[in-house]
């Protein structure tokens, strides 16, 4: 049986792991390759590396980093951050990434999703959505959560899946950094209405939050950063706990 996935996320800036709390106040959390290999060894099912470097050098730095990760890590990993062209994706996949994630660039030019799916296959195209609940619904935010749009997260996710996105990485900005649990409603709505896997992100604080997001919201995977980076929850303990709760996971 296919298992639920636990995915540590590593935000990368200038080659180091950092974690933004509420998308701000970045702190250093170590060497990404060391950390990635450690998580793989501990039983992480996948890794996500999000590059938040904003310099001109970033493209080359990122592909070199991806090569180093692929060399050392024996589980699948996704790379995202500032990807806006087919050539960027080609370079990253050639460097050894298993999947790439797109966010703002895909929203601004949705055809990018079609092009990437056609060129590389849906299985390696992850659509990342940052969303915030406002008034009546969940809306899409761009540029790392700084720019609001009038589009509902559900509508954009559905369109992107139709265009060929193979997975949705959904981050709730209301929940991110709060450690009060994942956004179960919007995660559940996407997971139950789309025929691609949904990765829930934002809000993990306790092991019970993972049980909730896999059970109630039927997420296919759950992503977290700081609780793993700062060892508040260790992956083997989490997996043991989930197994005890009847969640189908890998040992």
């Amino acid at each position: 049986m296919l298992t639920k996935r636990i995915i540590p996320c590593l935000d990368i800036k200038d080659g180091r792991t950092v974690k933004g709390v509420n998308f701000e106040n970045i702190r250093d959390a170590g060497d990404p390759i060391e950390l990635g290999a450690l998580y793989a060894q501990q039983g992480a099912d996948e890794l996500v590396f999000l590059d938040i470097t904003a310099t001109n050098e970033r493209r080359k730095t990122l592909s070199e980093l991806v090569t180093r990760i692929a060399r050392h890590v024996n589980i699948p990993f996704t790379v995202g951050g500032g990807i806006s062209a087919v050539e960027d994706v080609y370079v990253l996949l050639q460097s050894g990434a298993d999947k790439i994630s797109v966010n703002t660039s895909a929203f601004k030019r949705p055809e990018l999703v079609d092009e990437l799916a056609r060129e590389f296959g849906s299985q390696c195209i992850v659509l990342a959505i940052d969303t915030r609940f406002e008034g009546d619904d969940w809306y899409v935010y761009l540029n790392g959560g700084r720019v609001k749009t009038e589009t509902k997260a559900y509508d954009w996710a559905k369109e992107a899946v139709n265009r060929g996105a193979g997975e949705i990485l959904l981050t709730s900005m209301n929940n991110d950094g709060t450690k009060q649990g994942f956004a179960l409603d919007i995660t559940g709505r996407l997971s139950q209405n789309l025929n691609v896997p949904v990765i829930a992100s934002g809000g993990a604080g306790t092991m019970e939050h993972f049980t909730d997001v896999f059970g109630q919201a039927q997420a296919d995977a759950a992503l977290a950063a700081s609780i793993f980076h700062y060892k508040e929850i260790e992956i083997p303990t989490l997996k043991q706990y989930l197994y005890g709760k009847g969640v189908n996971i890998r040992f």
């Binding site: 049986m1 298992t3 099912d45 997975e167 025929n195």
Partner: peptide
């Protein structure tokens, strides 16, 4: 083939025994 719409996510992505 998904027996019921959206029951089976395709592609299968992840760890299986």
């Amino acid at each position: 083939q998904s027996p019921v719409e959206n029951l089976l996510k395709i592609p299968q992505i992840g760890w299986n025994n």
